[in-house]
Design a protein around this nucleic acid. Structure first.
Lengths: 85, 85
DNA sequence: AGAAAATGATGTATATATACAATATGAAAC
DNA sequence: GTTTCATATTGTATATATACATCATTTTCT
């Protein structure tokens, strides 16, 4: 199967939490260079690794990864605020 | 990284929808034997494939896959019904 | 400015996911 | 009962993810 390129917000979320790649890598149990590959979207994580990242950030997989380029989180937030007016 | 074994409800969901492995495989764009491997949990899907399966069933990834063995869907349903009494 | 830390880039090696073919078995249809 | 379809099993081949080392570049800290 030809894998589609996936998009993610790992870099954004990591910076929000003021973690270095090395620190994040340790939390999720991978080599720190692997985090670099993921942030640059050079390849996709395994589903298992996606679950670990999801758990580390306390966010659902769908909020971190997607099949379409990710809009800024601020936009996503506004969409929710407008939904319940 | 040593991959953890993941659990899934593919077989259940496929049967609910009365699909053969071949039919499901065509919808998500993989070999029908790959569906067998996933249902038997002999290996984990890639994140991309997990997204395709999620899209095909119209369910979030977390409802289909998990890091712990999956309880019957009926139990999960009752937990939700009790939550909002 | 200079040292230290974080990141980017390149290359090699291993583990894991996916495809595909062949065969066996079991269940369903006729 | 035998043909057909769905599934299981085994084997080989390829694609993709992950680890690890090294060096270059950039950023941060003092």
């Amino acid at each position: 199967m030809k894998q589609r390129k996936l998009y993610n917000r790992i870099n954004l979320l990591r910076q929000e939490r003021k973690l270095s790649r090395k620190e994040l890598a340790e939390k999720i149990g991978v080599n720190f260079q692997t985090v670099g590959y993921l942030e640059r979207e050079e390849y996709n994580p395994s589903l298992d690794l996606a679950f670990r990242i999801s758990g580390c950030f306390g966010l659902p997989i769908e909020l971190i990864f997607s099949t379409k380029p990710q809009p800024p989180l601020s936009e996503e937030l506004m969409r929710w605020r407008n939904k319940e007016e």
